Amino acid sequence: MLITVSGPAGSGKSTLAAGLSDALGYEHVSGGDIFRSLAEERGVSLVEFNELAEEDDQIDRDLDQRLRTTAREGDDIVLESRLAGWMAGDYADLRLWLDAPLDARAARIADREEKPVAQVREETRTRTESEAQRYEEYYGIDIDDRSIYDLTLNTARWSADACLSLVLDAADAYDPESDEGAYAVEGVRYEF
């Protein structure tokens, strides 16, 4: 089974994906890990690679290609990134979208990065707008379109353990043989 975990910064993607992979015995593949791997391959630091990515759209495209390849070739994987649900396309069995209000996400990031919440809130808002513009420009993806996701969770409503429990219940109830309620989503598989 391929499970994708997507959502904006601070939504709890990494926490949930790690918990899912542990509970299910699946491999956890993170877009952040792939990004670090790409930086390593180019022999640059993460800071330098981030700066390069702002000027070179091929970096985002390389990351997304690795996500697609992982989805196409892997089995029993939790694939985590903002675009994992889109990049996995028809290969995904269960697509999850995590979200929380900006203030909750900013507080989580501020705590993790030891920065002032107001600063993180503005950085996160700016980053979200920039990413949405790039996704639309690169792939024609409207990141606010939730129609491809099987389950959407507001992670500000439940603890990390409760979110994991909800998703594990959904994964357990997943029936790949069921056609009930199934439908095709046009434009989900991308060829780049």
Rank of each mutant, 00 (worst) to 15 (best):
E40F: 08
E186R: 13
S30W: 01
R125G: 00
V29H: 03
A9M: 15
G25W: 00
D150R: 00
D111P: 02
G74A: 07
D169C: 10
E80S: 07
Y174E: 05
E177Q: 12
T4Y: 01
E27D: 15
A71G: 07
L20S: 05
G89A: 03
R61I: 13
I59S: 03
E41G: 05
A84Q: 00
D144R: 15
R42L: 04
V120Y: 04
A118G: 05
M87P: 03
I148P: 00
I148S: 00
D144K: 14
E48V: 06
R36K: 14
E122A: 10
G31Q: 05
L63N: 01
A104H: 10
V120A: 06
E123G: 00
L16S: 02
A184L: 15
L46I: 11
Y190R: 15
I143Y: 00
L20P: 04
L94P: 00
L102S: 03
R68I: 12
A92F: 01
D57R: 15
L83G: 06
E80A: 07
R42G: 02
L98T: 03
G89W: 02
G187K: 12
S14Y: 10
A132C: 12
E177K: 12
S21M: 06
Q133G: 08
A132G: 13
M1S: 11
S81K: 05
I148F: 02
L20D: 03
R82T: 09
S130G: 13
W97E: 02
A171S: 13
A156N: 06
